[in-house]
Amino acid sequence: MNIRYKQASKEAKLSLLLTIIYLIAWIFTAYFGSDEKGLLGLPLWFELSCILVPFVFIILCWIVVRVQFKDIPLEQTK
């Protein structure tokens, strides 16, 4: 198998995994968070699901891209 396809498959699987984990984290914090006020004066479930979880996953995605993704030539090699 061509190395480009292996790398592209690996990156697609990592992206899908991050998406699924993000969705689970968002659902968990949005639906199971409490209604008490958080640090910003908003409901805690909102602060967790709409501020904290996206921030954490932006950093997590940045780390995954820096560590696992590679620049590969897209031209067909002979």
Rank of each mutant, 00 (worst) to 15 (best):
C61M: 06
L16A: 10
L16H: 03
L74E: 11
M1G: 13
L40A: 15
S34P: 02
L48W: 14
W62E: 02
L23H: 04
L52Q: 02
R66C: 07
L42Q: 10
L44A: 12
P54V: 01
Q7I: 14
L74V: 12
P43M: 10
F55T: 12
K13Y: 09
S49E: 01
V67I: 14
L23F: 06
S15V: 09
K70M: 09
S34T: 14
K37Q: 07
L44Q: 08
L17D: 00
T19S: 04
S49G: 01
Y5Q: 11
E75Y: 14
I21E: 07
I27F: 08
F32E: 07
A30I: 01
F28W: 07
Q68D: 13
V67S: 04
I63Y: 07
D35N: 15
F57W: 05
V53K: 04
E11K: 06
E36F: 15
I59W: 14
N2L: 09
I20E: 00
S9N: 05
A25H: 02
T29M: 09
G38Y: 13
L48M: 15
P73T: 14
K78P: 10
F55D: 05
V64R: 01
D35W: 02
L52H: 02
F32V: 07
I51C: 00
I63P: 00
T77I: 02
L17T: 02
E36C: 07
P43W: 13
E75A: 15
K78N: 15
L18R: 04
Q76L: 15
P43T: 10
I3A: 09
